[in-house]
Design a protein around this nucleic acid. Structure first.
Lengths: 232, 232
DNA sequence: CGTCAAGGGATTGCATACAACTTGGTTCGG
DNA sequence: CCGAACCAAGTTGTATGCAATCCCTTGACG
């Protein structure tokens, strides 16, 4: 109801500087760092995530590392075997394709629900994120695109008006963000994706949920092809 | 891949005896205990979950309690405020209604995917669970119905063929199981629900995904009404 | 030569101690 | 009398130490 103490819905604004090392704080920071290690491809699928190693690398103790790994396991990004450790899950082509299928089914619905509820600030945030993504693409810094894209989609998910729907969708998007790399996009597909974002902003500005629903579906189906995912 | 050590996909077969106190082991046990405390209504919505209190109650240290709370938070059952603690989330009528709406969208799709993939063992398990639920209803032990029902639906979710879809669906079903009490069902609605289960078994036996999809959708929409949830 | 059992090393799981933060009450000042 | 700052109690966040478990190696025996 009251939406002020929701600590879980922050949209993770990346501070332009990626710098994985340096500003390591603790807890939440450890989670983010490990996640970026996975998303960045530094830890490929199947890699073992040793608590002591990560703890030393980030300059914290094993405790926050353990919490981060548990959280990642709950999100389906890593798999924990009792007394054996955690390893990065492998995404089969079928997994990725299925992920897009499900997102294509439900994220448009989230957009339909969210757009009529959006405040002017929400729309401004969408516009800002869209602009920043275009800048990032022009600069060729595709690494930053994933986080911005997740934040962009997160706005629609968070504003859909149902907390549990949002939770489910986010647990669906988290693996998608990891599996989804913009590096294999063709320039045309990348431009198309950016155009979709701009059009989603326009639909949000017009508060036209059905328009947003339609373009969101288009966006995800296009992404499924751009990412090279084929149906199983 | 190999499906033997997947600790997250177990279907949680309840051993008839509910007995929350007694067999407290650790870790996984702590999670189950806290979850049952919430599901059983002993910890109403808004209650604060003090780590020290729970630790002493279950005879373990705060460490496994913290892991349990984090897991429950990831599932949307509790809400953690930094440096303030965890409290049981409150399910507004709108939340519950939204939960059913979303499940009405997701679970039939899962059934459509899962049924053609099911083994004979899977179908037998469904039949067994359906029968046990009918027995439980006849005996009037509605408390056990929730876990059996979760296991029943879990079969469809687990067999849908996409791990991440299954993860997302489970994160959706967990709060649903808690919010969903069969106690307020009318006898007619309860019988209708049992009939749906039996028909789902029949559809699974026939390996007819579309039939299963249709009856699953019916089942959930009926449940939405039986639980008294109205659209917002 | 193959197989099984025992040992060593490494890693996780849990418990405990300490530090940082939040909160409620109290006291001082206006 | 009211408000703001401060202090103290309680709770969470983090670090560290120890015990249990698992895997792999090594050795002996069939």
């Amino acid at each position: 109801m009251k939406g002020m103490e929701s600590a879980a819905t922050e949209t993770a604004v990346v501070p332009t500087g990626t710098a994985p090392t340096g500003m390591a704080s603790t807890g939440e920071g450890a989670y983010e760092q490990v996640r970026q290690l996975i998303a960045g491809g530094e830890l490929p699928a199947g890699s073992w995530l040793r608590e002591a190693t990560l703890a030393e690398r980030f300059g914290v103790s094993r405790t926050p590392i353990r919490e981060a790994l548990n959280r990642l396991a709950a999100e389906g990004l890593v798999e924990i075997s009792k007394n054996k450790g955690a390893q990065v899950v492998s995404f089969t082509p079928d997994d990725v394709a299925g992920l897009y299928d499900v997102r294509a089914g439900f994220e448009p619905h989230a957009a339909l629900l969210a757009v009529p509820r959006m405040t002017d600030d929400d729309v401004r945030e969408l516009a800002s994120l869209s602009t920043r993504m275009e800048d990032v693409v022009r600069a060729g810094r595709l690494d930053e695109l994933g986080a911005l894209n997740a934040a962009f989609h997160g706005v629609f998910v968070d504003r859909c008006g149902n907390r549990h729907f949002a939770t489910a969708l986010q647990s669906l998007m988290r693996p998608a963000v990891v599996a989804h790399t913009f590096r294999q996009y063709t320039p045309e597909a990348l431009q198309r994706s950016m155009n979709h974002h701009a059009e989603l902003v326009a639909a949000a500005e017009a508060r036209d949920g059905e328009w947003a629903e339609a373009i969101m579906r288009t966006h995800i189906l296009a992404a499924r092809n751009a990412a090279g995912a084929r149906r199983g």
